[in-house]
Design a binder for these strands. Structure first.
Length: 202
DNA sequence: CACCAGGTTGACC
DNA sequence: GGTCAACATGGT
């Protein structure tokens, strides 16, 4: 059995099922993916509620919204001028391409990466949690956790490790990423990784 | 007061 | 290819 499967089992045993990325619509995942960049999820939830209160959680309405109003709604998430502008542009792209999330994984990922404000992690989060297609999301927590067990590399290298050692199962990928974040929150800070003993018997 | 949060970009080497 | 400041609010 590969070590990454073992880690999954250990984390699942420790934390159980995570209700990860709750969202009413796929587009809400897209919006959340932008807003959560370098930001706590609790703040993102406030911004999402603000947008919903103004009826701005669809590509069509967000496209027409004044960027100043979007800024107001998302200020709580930081980098709010950037994020508002990018959300506006992204909503225009989604409004003009309603079927975008139905596209094949490779094509979809490439198209998402072409949008301002969408990098590797955001693109993969959208592919996995909004389009429900198997792409493993690598984030800061993932990088730290792998470092705990002696694995380092670029985004794509780390992603390849997961995707080559795990069955390409959407629910597995979703759950695993959620478990890694949970592990990171409790045990692995930027300063130090205590409690890596959780993963010490590999 | 210092540091960090579910990153991305553009400039520079 | 890699590194680095800028982006900005809110919590500890």
């Amino acid at each position: 059995m590969s070590s990454l499967i073992k880690i999954y089992d250990i984390l699942f045993e420790e934390f159980g099922h995570r209700n990860w990325w709750p969202a009413e619509t796929p587009f809400e995942v897209v919006v959340g993916a932008i807003l959560t960049q370098q930001t706590r999820w609790e703040n993102v939830e406030v911004a999402i509620d603000n947008l919903k209160a103004h009826g701005l959680m669809t590509p069509e309405t967000l496209t027409k919204a004044d960027v100043g109003l979007i800024e107001e709604c998302v200020r709580v998430t930081g980098f709010y001028r950037q994020k508002a502008k990018r959300l506006s542009l992204i909503s225009k792209h989604f409004a003009a391409n309603p079927e975008i999330l139905q596209k094949p994984v490779g094509l979809l990922r490439k198209e998402l990466l072409s949008l301002k404000g969408v990098g590797n992690e955001t693109a993969d989060s959208i592919v996995l949690y909004a389009a429900n297609k198997p792409k493993f999301v690598v984030d800061a927590y993932t990088t730290r956790m792998l470092k705990c067990v002696g694995i380092e590399g670029t985004y794509c290298q780390l992603q390849k490790r997961f995707e080559s050692q795990l069955p390409h199962d959407v629910e597995l990928f979703k759950e695993y990423h959620a478990l890694i974040v949970e592990y990171g929150k409790y045990f692995c800070n930027k300063k130090r990784c205590h409690e890596c003993l959780l993963l010490s018997n590999l």
